[in-house]
């Protein structure tokens, strides 16, 4: 399992792996928003939590369709399915590798980009915390969508349609927690709900994703 994690992270880092893709997309979205919305600082501060969370979410979505597709195309997925590791573990490991190469870097640069959107300093901590807690759910849910669409050529559109509704609760509670923090309120309730979604997702979804993979490998 650790070998698989190491391999996936290494593949993402090497040429053509798309490691910087999510990060660059996130950066571009956040930099462009002030040009589109206008430079009023109050407006920017008000929309900052939503924009940052939405940017992170879409950046996550961007690299999902390659999660199983590359392994499917070169035959690795067949071999992984016959290897002495449970397919559920493969799904979870690959989702973790996806999170390490997209969710984690996004979390780290988010406070810097928050400053661009005039996000109050006291909300930066909440932003990092919500992304840290919430983005693993995005990767695991995305792995489920990727598993469902693995056999399809150009399955990216279908993948987005399948996965985006599942992302809505995470987006709502994540952005809400940051908004509350930037308004100086306590953000405990949305934070707890966000954590609850992530834990539930990590516990249940790998089984569904492994089931979908088994059907697609037939």
């Amino acid at each position: 399992m650790i070998g698989l994690l190491k391999r996936d992270v290494m593949l993402a880092m090497r040429a053509g792996g798309g490691f910087g893709l999510a990060l660059a997309f996130f950066l571009i979205v956040v930099v462009l928003v002030p040009f589109g919305v206008g430079p009023e600082r109050e407006v920017l501060a008000r929309i900052a939590p939503g924009v940052l969370w939405l940017g992170a979410l879409l950046a996550c979505l961007l690299s999902l369709d390659r999660l199983f597709a590359t392994d499917y195309e070169d035959g690795s997925l067949d071999l992984l399915a016959t290897a002495p590791v449970p397919l559920e573990g493969v799904v979870l490991t690959k989702a973790l590798a996806h999170w390490i190469t997209t969710g984690l870097p996004l979390t780290i640069v988010a406070p810097l980009l928050g400053a661009l959107l005039n996000l109050p300093g006291e909300a930066a901590g909440a932003l990092v915390l919500t992304l840290l807690v919430g983005t693993p759910a995005l990767s695991v849910l995305g792995a489920f969508g990727a598993a469902l669409t693995v056999g399809l050529k150009r399955g990216g559109l279908l993948l987005s349609l399948l996965v985006l509704p599942l992302y809505v609760p995470t987006l709502i509670f994540g952005a809400d927690a940051v908004r509350r923090a930037s308004d100086g309120l306590t953000a405990t309730t949305p934070m707890l709900l966000l954590g609850l979604i992530t834990l539930g997702t990590v516990a249940i979804v790998p089984f569904a994703a492994a089931g979908a993979l088994r059907v697609n490998l037939r």
């Binding site: 391999r7 593949l11 070169d74 035959g75 071999l79 290897a83 002495p84």
Partner: peptide
Amino acid sequence: ADGIKSTLSVAENLEFWAGLF
């Protein structure tokens, strides 16, 4: 299909499967 990752070296490819098994 051999399940070979083109950006990994021969030894890295094989080490991955050896580790898995």
